[in-house]
């Protein structure tokens, strides 16, 4: 039985059982059935395993998150029952992770995920100054959240999400505003397609593009509205 299930395109129903807690965006609970309690969690202990709070690694991770600005308040649902999650009328897309490939997305896009998934902050700007400038230009930020393990994740998007497969022989290009996240070993590079036309206000509106290469799946939303 799947842990997460779409009630409609915007609401996700999650099964909560002892030993199977669900981490979610704080305040995203719409309703629940059964005996479920919610307690606040910060990103460092949610997903990093229990009891990581006081430990050195937990603290380090907390500091890392604060520095990276990649922080969204989380809560954990614990007990026995079903919880309905939704946020701001946005579409919720469920992604099943089989453990072989990580999911990468902005933390603000995470609606809910299995607490057993390991979450960490990764640095995007590995490509040097140029990549960093690109990340700043797209508003993506230099840091992003990665979830690893076996479990399910619900991501938020404006409009439907469609998946595009990326293979080494088939790179794809995504509008940074429509990019939601990706699964697998995909690297993103910003390509600036700016010419004199942009300077005089005659650009095609597609000046900044994200080039996705590698092996995996890119999630794209049907809108150019950033979160």
């Amino acid at each position: 039985m799947p842990q997460f299930e779409n009630v409609n395109s915007k609401v996700v129903k999650a099964q909560v059982r002892p030993g199977q807690q669900v981490a979610s965006r704080r305040g995203a609970m719409l309703a629940y059935v059964g005996e479920v309690s919610f307690y606040p969690a910060n990103a460092s202990n949610a997903g990093g395993g229990m009891g990581g709070m006081g430990g050195g690694s937990g603290l380090m991770r907390m500091a890392g998150r604060a520095m990276a600005g990649e922080h969204t308040a989380l809560m954990v649902g614990d007990g026995q029952g079903e919880v309905y999650y939704g946020y701001a009328g946005m579409c919720a897309e469920i992604i099943h992770l089989d453990g072989s490939q990580p999911l990468t997305a902005e933390s603000s896009r995470l609606l809910a995920h299995d607490l057993s998934l390991n979450s960490s902050v990764v640095f995007l700007g590995r490509g040097g100054v140029r990549a960093m400038a690109g990340a700043a230009a797209t508003g993506e930020g230099l840091f992003t959240t990665q979830l690893v393990g076996v479990g399910e994740v619900a991501l938020l998007a404006h409009g439907d999400v469609f998946r595009l497969e990326v293979r080494p022989d088939r790179p794809i290009v995504v509008d940074p505003q429509a990019y939601v996240g990706h699964v697998g070993q995909v690297s993103l590079n910003v390509s600036l397609n700016v010419s004199w036309r942009n300077a005089v206000g005659r650009g095609s509106g597609e000046a900044i593009q994200l080039q996705a290469t590698g092996q995996g799946t890119v999630l794209v939303q049907a809108s150019e509205q950033k979160f």
Partner: peptide, 8 residues
């Protein structure tokens, strides 16, 4: 203008 979300 600007309606592209992705391409290959």
């Amino acid at each position: 203008t600007g309606a592209m979300v992705a391409y290959d």
